[in-house]
């Protein structure tokens, strides 16, 4: 159920996620240690193209990576194959893109550029 292209997409998104995960951890530790409030965080992220690109690419990579990984798991563990397997993979991709994309949009560019 894993073809070369799906394998490549999963490895590529893993490579993309590795530095983004480290960046995300650094941001979290910085935010917690400095005691930033929600308002202070939003003040930094709203209107920021940089944060939009950072977390936007993160969401994109996570959605692709997780959809392929879950595709393998439900195929091997539950025996799902064929059209149902493709439907499940695309549904996971769309769901993660929607949820993650909406969150990133709301904390970055929803109010316009600054």
């Amino acid at each position: 159920m894993l073809t070369l292209r799906l394998y490549f997409a999963q490895r590529l998104t893993a490579i993309i996620m590795a530095p983004l995960t480290l960046g995300h951890l650094v941001v979290m530790i910085y935010a917690v240690q400095d005691g930033l409030s929600v308002a202070e965080i939003l003040a930094r992220t709203r209107g920021s193209v940089t944060w939009f690109l950072f977390y936007g690419s993160f969401v994109l990579a996570v959605a692709v990576h997780a959809a392929i990984g879950l595709r393998v798991i439900i195929s091997e563990w539950l025996g799902v194959r064929g059209v149902m397997l493709s439907f499940f993979s695309w549904a996971v991709l769309v769901l993660l893109l929607f949820l993650g994309g909406r969150a990133v949009w709301m904390v970055t560019l929803a109010g316009g550029l600054q």
Partner: peptide, 9 residues
């Protein structure tokens, strides 16, 4: 070896 049941599994 790159198809659905190939080496990448």
């Amino acid at each position: 070896v790159s198809a659905g049941g190939g080496c990448h599994n």
